[in-house]
Amino acid sequence: MIAKNLSRVLIYGVLLLAAFFFLAPMYVMLATSFKDAEEIRSGNLLSLPHALNFEAWQLAWSTACTGTDCRGLQPFFWNSVLIVFPAVIISTLWGAINGYVLSLWKFKGSEVLFGFMLFGVFMPFQVVLLPMSQILGWLGISSSVYGLIFVHCLAGLAGTTLFFRNYYAAIPKELVNAARIDGAGFWRIFIRIIVPLSTPIVMVTLIWQFTNIWNDFLFGVAFSGADSKPITVGLNNMVNTTSSVKNYNVDMAAAVIAGLPTILIYVLAGKFFVKGLTAGAVKG
């Protein structure tokens, strides 16, 4: 009994220590964002702010300079919103259809095709920058929000296909065969039978894609134009904008603003992510 209690205390101690190291940077960012410049210079990194001062947040959102543009993160934030929602929806739907075909409507060479698609999961995205820029130029959507949506749909397709294919592989094929005997076709089976069973994996894919696209910097800096830069690029430009005095509180507030949507997604829907994974997202 004593050994069991000591083991539990040790486990909780290790978990608390890990939580401390994980949350310490977030605490420093939040605490610094609520301080003014004088309090930052006179205090220490871990001290609490004397009062909640939202001036840095206002500056980071609407008036801080990113290069010569002094509109804060606001335009970059809305660019990311315009990019992330259609890209997440399209890549998720596209992956669901691919996974449905590759698991329940197999054809000759489907396994080989799926194997080639898996290269997209492990391939470093740096190798596609040049050919992708040429394709965007041919399509006439380079340096635009539409171009970034297109890029993220293609970049996420391998991962979403993998998720849905492995999840649908666990669905009894007799269910699909019975529906085909009753006269149901490809799309009716997908919409009436498969989609209602797909809630767990849809939640996994939506959260996964939202996080990847919102936090992306590589494609944002490579393929965006002056009016289509996502928030990660705006944050980088803001932090690297030189001035006579470094406003650490503004930089910290900007970093929290940039990361807030993904934090909220995991806080509000994290349990669905875990349920979806355990329901079959990594099986197959």
Rank of each mutant, 00 (worst) to 15 (best):
P131M: 07
A169Y: 05
L102P: 15
T160S: 12
W61P: 01
Y100M: 02
F273A: 03
R8L: 12
I207R: 14
R41C: 06
L73H: 09
N237L: 08
Y168R: 00
L260H: 03
D36A: 15
P124H: 08
I201R: 03
G156Q: 12
A64D: 09
F20Y: 10
I11S: 09
W138P: 01
L235R: 12
Y167F: 14
A253Y: 06
K106E: 03
F190E: 04
L23Q: 11
F77I: 13
G159E: 10
T68K: 15
A253T: 02
T211G: 06
P200D: 04
T161M: 07
T92V: 11
P49Y: 02
A60T: 14
T232L: 05
T63P: 09
A169W: 10
Q74R: 12
S42N: 07
F186A: 08
L206Y: 11
V81T: 02
I263P: 01
M238H: 08
F122C: 13
G99Y: 02
L130H: 04
A60L: 13
L48Q: 09
L157W: 03
R8S: 13
L6M: 11
W187D: 02
A155H: 03
V145T: 02
S198C: 04
N212P: 04
W208G: 11
A170R: 14
R8P: 08
F122A: 11
S7A: 14
W94C: 09
T211Q: 09
A254G: 13
Y168Q: 00
R192K: 11
N98K: 11
Y168T: 00
M123S: 09
G270F: 03
I2D: 06
A87M: 00
A51Y: 10
F21I: 13
I83M: 03
Y167K: 03
V84T: 15
F76W: 08
I194Y: 00
F54L: 14
G13I: 05
G156R: 05
L206K: 05
A226L: 09
A60D: 12
Y12S: 15
K271A: 14
V256L: 15
T278F: 07
D69F: 04
L113K: 04
K108C: 10
H152F: 03
